[in-house]
Design a binder for these strands. Structure first.
Lengths: 206, 206
DNA sequence: TTCTGTGAACGGATTCACAGCA
DNA sequence: TGCTGTGAATCCGTTCACAGAA
């Protein structure tokens, strides 16, 4: 059934899920692809096509049951479980990431934080102890961690990513402002507000 | 000359620029589309095609002069000037954004911060005074600000974006976990680490 | 010879349009 | 009638392949 689903479809699923969650909050039981599309600024046809890769979730003449579709997407996306993560780099940025309250309600939990600065080792961020980077492999394996968050300086980012991948991480969320390469089968997403800003100034200049 | 350049090309320019900056740091004077493509995991043909939308910057048989191409991209992207920005929301996340050291070296400067919580007004983040949200319009107009950064709770994000747009902002960097709609001609980029993580778990699940 | 710039060919994603079911 | 699911048609970005300049 999951033939060969384009990555771009997978990238849209989280948006759909967030919109459905919002509809559920508003006690809306049923939504059409038209209504969902208006909310998300996406064509109804695209929503129907995207969902059709995974099955038939709607009722003709009616639309989609919000709770049902939300549950299906949650399962499809693998979000019906908790995902432990490790964080590397607990400078200013890393500390903010460790304190970000948006992860846990969505099932993402930082279970260990690492740095290489001796003066930081043993200190805590909230209840999270800072460990030496040399322990990252053992932690990833012992705690079955798949996801690593990188918040080190750009010059060190590739080395840290390589270390995480060698330790067993299969997905990397990179906050460092650097071009990172990962082997096939390893997933990478970059969070870089400067690149986002730079892609808008082109349109702003006179 | 600027016919109709696909947005996806504009989204890649910041990557090219960052890679060129890195080459410049390493005192590399000339680079071919082949070499640049290897660094960025992009095909050489794509790089040449993308650049050809803006002009002819290379020398056949040689490649591209790094300094020259970097300067051209900087100009094309509108990065040969400083961009003042306003920040709305100075909770935990907003405070981290205000302190992020990556903006200023790239020409992005937060010139005013706003919140609606009375106990925050008048306090400072570094040297940045926190103003009442009611002053945002005057600030944007007086200081010729085009870019607004939104770091408020998701439930308030659309209202704040609307206010920024009504005040004259033409680009929004949104950190709130919410689907935001903007009028035509207004540019929006979302920074949402949770969406990024959720687009990877699909591939991680067994 | 090397490597750019670019029209042409290709391939994949989006949109169309409609059969079919509630 | 209203709206889904989906093959077909369309659109658009990527890659190819080569002429031409250094």
């Amino acid at each position: 059934m999951p033939n060969r689903i384009p990555e771009i479809v997978i990238l849209r699923l989280p948006m759909y899920r967030r919109a459905l969650h919002s509809l559920e909050q508003d006690n809306i039981d049923v939504v059409s692809s038209q209504e969902l599309g208006e909310r998300l600024q996406v064509t109804p046809a695209q929503i129907r096509k995207d969902l059709s890769y995974f099955g038939k979730f709607g009722k003709q003449g009616m639309g989609y049951n919000v709770k049902r579709l939300l549950a299906e997407l949650t399962r499809i996306m693998g979000l019906d479980r908790e995902w432990p993560m490790v964080l590397v780099g607990v400078g200013r940025l890393g500390t903010a990431i460790a304190s970000y309250p948006g992860f846990v309600p969505q099932g993402f939990r930082i279970v260990a934080a690492f740095d290489s600065a001796p003066q930081l080792i043993g200190r805590k961020i909230g209840s999270l102890a800072i460990l030496d980077i040399s322990e990252v492999k053992r932690t990833i394996q012992d705690k079955h961690v798949d996801i690593g968050i990188v918040a080190v300086p750009g010059s060190q980012a590739q080395r840290i990513v390589d270390m995480l991948v060698a330790s067993g991480a299969r997905a990397i969320l990179n906050y460092a402002p650097a071009t990172i390469r990962v082997p096939p089968g390893i997933h990478l997403r970059d969070i870089d507000p400067v690149l986002a800003l730079q892609s808008m100034t082109y349109y702003l200049k006179p």
